[in-house]
Nucleic acid binder design. Structure first.
Length: 563
RNA sequence: GCCCCAGUAGCUCAAUGGAUAGAGCACCGGCCUUCUAAGCCGUAGGUUGGGGGUUCGAGUCCCUCCUGGGGCGCCA
């Protein structure tokens, strides 16, 4: 758990304080100390610009402040060089001996080496996916699940206790409409001329599912009263088809949920009534025009009131959301809840925050992650996605063509805020040059070296890590040590896309090491490596495999031994 | 009209307010007798949409304009 930047910031702080005590520096409030990775290696491994920020406060030149800080800097075996560069940066360089020791450390700790304890065991729920279960997932929802699962992975590595949940919207009008559409296709498959309902689901898959149900259940449903038949076909469509395909897609992408939470359960056991009376007590409800409204405008003038129970007596989606979040926080006691939504739900965010206040909960305990919708390009043309109109590009189709890992990598590699254009044809064409293979290939290469070493009976056992002095070896270790910082950055910003960049960099420095440093001796001619080097490098290679596999697993992908 | 998000290399995208803005793809030129060539090396590519401001320092923060995406339902 090497939180190098964190520790350096503390040490810098100590140094400034000490210099102030000794009157080498005047008294001033120490600004936040940010330790960063400089772009060029000539500035060392880490640097800070705190002296520039302090110049005005101290009424001194940044360079002079830096000299005092360096003079008072605590001794540490971790660093072997402290330097100052104009106009007042302090540059830190990690000691080779410390870097080498990390190889042993990684071998001892395994894949949890880079984990940190930011979360201190707090219970966090990440709810993602949660598409209406009225059809197969399309590419846009692929982004949702990949982002959500990536966030969950990163938070788990950062010391949170994470629960992954899919909210199944199995109540409400969309579901009824879906049931009616499905019933029509089912009846049609049996030669009964039932028309699609107005505004019904037109997608080809509804026909397909209708046919399948007709085959499996014959005309059983046609004989029932319509109400009962719709209820039955809703259940069949949901469990056997819609959720079944969601589960299969998630599996193909390497995603598994802890809980599939059904909306309908919110309306059982009187839970919903409880919440309504709670809101009534807090004077957040009002009856108007035959409906029950949530009076968000009482708390914040900028907000609009929202219908909770429609004039037809049916609760709306917001009613479910209130009950659902009451359940998350109060019934199940999560410390923090993260919901992952498409940007088309952005207007909903302020109401959710108002709801938290109305329930007497700190709004900061609920984080809404919004990702920009995926634009699809196919055959050179932009496609407008609509599940009801049946113009979606199925995620399954893409996974079959390109593979789950490649789809996942592409969808993960962009920040949630970026409006990504997914060119389906290009993704297929370039599937061979997808960076995911570069990363996995590096892992397979490592596995290959270790296989060969075992076959030729070379062992890392007595390897002396202090022999790892080649620039390519040290560069590799530096990058491995950096994983903690990447986890921290991804966890604090809820931005797992950093992992994809890190994995590529790590694969790259490994490949350069592979090019420059022979691990196993050649069988003829110049062996390329002494017995001692082989043993030490085998240790390094094993450690590299651990860190690379960790990065790959955090992205939810497989780390193959052969390709 | 109001609100949210974005605009960075030919394309797809990175870059906790820091030093010379980086990758991948595509293009061009080299490299397999060696632990995996799904690889390596090299060349080229930029007024970070325009303008103003804050700051020692701005792709990043603020204002404004332009362009694109999304939202402003008793749908979810």
């Amino acid at each position: 758990m090497p939180r190098v930047q964190h520790d350096l910031a503390q040490m810098t702080h100590q140094a400034i304080r000490k210099a102030q005590k000794k009157k080498d520096l005047p008294r001033f409030d120490i600004p936040e100390i940010v330790i960063e990775r400089p772009k060029s290696t000539e500035w060392g491994d880490y640097s800070t610009a705190v002296c520039l920020a302090a110049a005005r406060l101290a009424a001194m030149a940044p360079l002079d402040i830096a000299k005092q800080v360096v003079k008072r800097f605590p001794k540490t075996a971790r660093l072997d060089d402290l330097s100052i560069s104009a106009p007042g940066f302090i540059n830190f360089s990690l000691a080779d001996s410390w870097l080498q020791s990390q190889v042993e450390e990684i071998l001892a700790q395994g894949e949890t080496y880079a984990d940190i304890n930011l979360g201190e065991g707090k219970r966090v729920q990440v709810e993602f996916g949660s598409a209406n279960p009225t059809g197969p997932l399309h590419v846009g929802f692929g982004r949702n699940v990949v982002l959500g699962d990536g966030i969950a992975n990163v938070l788990a590595a950062a010391g949170y206790q994470v629960q992954r949940e899919y909210y199944v919207n199995d109540a409400g009008t969309q579901m009824d409409l879906f049931a009616e559409s499905l019933f029509a296709r089912y009846a049609q498959a049996l030669g009964d001329d039932t028309p699609l309902p107005e505004g019904g689901y037109q997608g080809e898959y509804v026909t397909r599912w209708g046919k399948a149900i007709a085959q499996r259940h014959a005309d059983k449903l046609l004989g029932m009263p319509r109400r009962q038949a719709l209820e039955q076909i809703k259940q069949i469509g949901l469990e056997e088809h819609a959720l079944g395909s969601v589960r299969a897609d998630c599996e193909a992408l390497g995603i598994s949920y802890d809980e599939w939470f059904h909306e309908t359960t919110l309306y059982q056991e009187g839970q919903f009534q409880e919440i309504m009376s709670l809101l009534r007590q807090r004077d957040m409800l009002e009856e108007r025009e035959g409906a029950v409204w949530f009076t968000a405008s009482k708390h914040d003038e900028r907000l609009k009131d929202e219908v909770i129970i429609r004039s037809n007596g049916q609760p709306g989606y917001f009613a479910s959301d209130i009950a659902y979040h009451y359940n998350k926080f109060i019934e199940r006691g999560f410390d923090w809840v993260i919901d992952v939504w498409g940007a088309d739900h952005q207007g909903h965010v302020p109401r959710m925050k108002a709801m938290m206040k109305a329930l007497g909960l700190d709004p900061d305990r609920l984080t809404l992650i919004l990702y920009q919708l995926v634009a699809i390009k196919k055959g050179g043309a932009d496609i407008r996605l609509s599940k009801r109109a049946g113009t979606l590009v199925e995620l399954r189709e893409l996974i079959n063509d390109v593979g789950g890992d490649a789809v996942r990598f592409v969808l993960l590699s962009r920040a949630a805020d970026s409006q990504m254009v997914f060119d389906v044809d290009l993704a297929r064409e370039q599937s061979d040059s997808n960076p995911v293979y570069y990363v996995q290939y590096a892992h397979a290469r490592i596995a290959s070296i270790l296989r060969e070493a075992a076959k030729r009976e070379f062992s890392a056992k007595n390897g002396d890590v202090s022999l790892l002095t080649h620039p390519a070896e040290l560069a590799l270790i530096r990058k491995m040590v950096d994983l903690s910082a990447v986890i921290e950055k991804a966890a604090t910003n809820l931005a797992p896309h950093h992992l994809t960049h890190y994995a590529q960099e790590l694969a790259n420095v490994f490949t350069l090491f592979y090019r420059d440093c022979r691990v196993l001796p050649r069988k003829s001619g110049d062996p390329g490596a002494t017995a001692e080097e082989t043993a030490a490098r085998l240790k390094l290679v094993r450690a590299a495999r651990i860190i690379l596999a960790r990065a790959i697993h955090l992205m939810g992908m497989s780390a193959p031994d052969r390709m």
